[in-house]
Design a protein around this nucleic acid. Structure first.
Lengths: 229, 229
DNA sequence: GCAAAAGTGTTTTGTCTACACCCATGA
DNA sequence: TCATGGGTGTAGACAAAACACTTTTGC
């Protein structure tokens, strides 16, 4: 099947690794797993896997994410390749890193036990496999750039959320406090949110109104971009 | 050498393709070559090549760029992977696209003859190999984002240049006219440019002052970013 | 009635945009 | 002397930032 000229070229292993972000209401966290093969058996690492001949790179990333989380339809984007010759002592493996944003509660305790996985705060990461620490750092930077101009980050929140939760998310990503009035005004002006009658009463006596996204406007803003910070 | 578990995984071909941008004073152009192997022999395509086992992905991109242009120390950045299963009918090849910014005069007529290569305006591209058209589109978009906040784009200009050449570059990238006074003020305020005594007398009787970059400030601004548009 | 978080406007500051004329020079 | 591109400043519009008090309600 393959053209003759191609056959004599070097064939390599191509992997995908997923930086899976979650938000627990206070901090951004990354989901890591205990590696189950050599080299690096038992080390904390990103969830990864090899790209098969019969699937696209994106499909491989989706498959690997699904293997760990059971989730489909997750926001995921390519971060970039990691292609140093000796990055993996087990062989010549080029990895393409992807970052995914999930609702932290979509990932159950049961799955954590099953896969020996755990959420880690970004400034309390363990020692990581290979160049996975660098991948997470780059992904964190990319996440900042992304959410400054796209509503993507909102997918880290539960489907109903309060304005203070949304602000807390941005404060966690940018690691700085923001002004409540300015923040509220900006996000409401985007016209992206629908206010519900319901209130969230967990955190205060008064209770805060819950909001949901207007999917149509979300799609429009995703394409066009905006500036929220 | 390779770990046992790795051996049974699929091995694929990994390629790099370079989107090489130049600026002729009026338009952004891309450097294309006539493909010299099957499949797609004779078609216009990006300069590309396979990643060898003994080189990093970045080194491969650098090597491929150098093969065509003879240049080293070129501004180059990863665009992303192109990994559809059937993107290359010759076999399962995943390509990592890189874009490079060179001074158009660094690429001689002699090299164009030797490699059957040619500069094309971005809105007059020929029919291209595989998904190379899509790569160029994405690279063009990325270039816009990049130069809006980083001085990288300046590397498309000759080492001495006038303010109007710089403005022309931005106008070409954004495909819109800008205000001369506003533009001048903004770039001078960055403190990035050093005014020379020399004047460029080619395009007007009066002559326009030439500028060069202050390398130190360039490096600082590269990291920190700015907003020019 | 009080503690604790929710909700809400205005003023100030800074940034961005629009806009037009004189200058220097070679032909 | 005139045609051509080079160089320069200001006023108004708009957006961003700073800032503090009232409301609701469960205990």
């Amino acid at each position: 099947m393959a053209t003759e000229q191609y056959k004599k070229e070097d064939h390599l292993l191509l992997a995908v690794d997923c930086i899976i972000f979650g938000f627990d209401g206070n901090r951004i966290k990354a989901l890591l797993v205990k590696r189950n093969l050599e080299p690096g058996l038992g080390k904390w690492s990103l969830m990864g896997g090899f790209v098969k001949k019969t699937e696209s790179v994106k499909d491989a990333a989706t498959r690997v994410l699904n293997l760990l989380t059971g989730l489909t339809d997750v926001y995921m984007e390519e971060l970039g390749s990691f292609g140093e010759v000796n990055r993996d002592p087990g062989g010549r493996v080029v990895s393409i890193a992807w970052y995914a944003l999930i609702k932290i509660n979509d990932y159950s305790e049961a799955l954590m036990k099953e896969h020996q996985s755990k959420w880690f705060e970004l400034d309390h990461l363990p020692v990581l496999l290979f160049d996975h620490g660098e991948m997470i750092l780059q992904a964190k930077e990319r996440l900042r750039e992304k959410v400054s101009a796209h509503p993507a980050g909102f997918t880290l929140l539960p489907s109903k959320f309060t304005l203070q939760q949304l602000q807390g998310l941005y404060e966690a990503i940018y690691e700085k406090k923001m002004d409540k009035r300015n923040f509220t005004r900006r996000v409401l002006e985007l016209g992206l949110l629908k206010k519900l009658e319901e209130k969230e009463k967990g955190t205060s006596r008064k209770g805060a109104y819950l909001y949901v996204f207007d999917k149509n406007k979300y799609d429009k803003l995703s394409k066009k971009g905006f500036r929220i910070i």
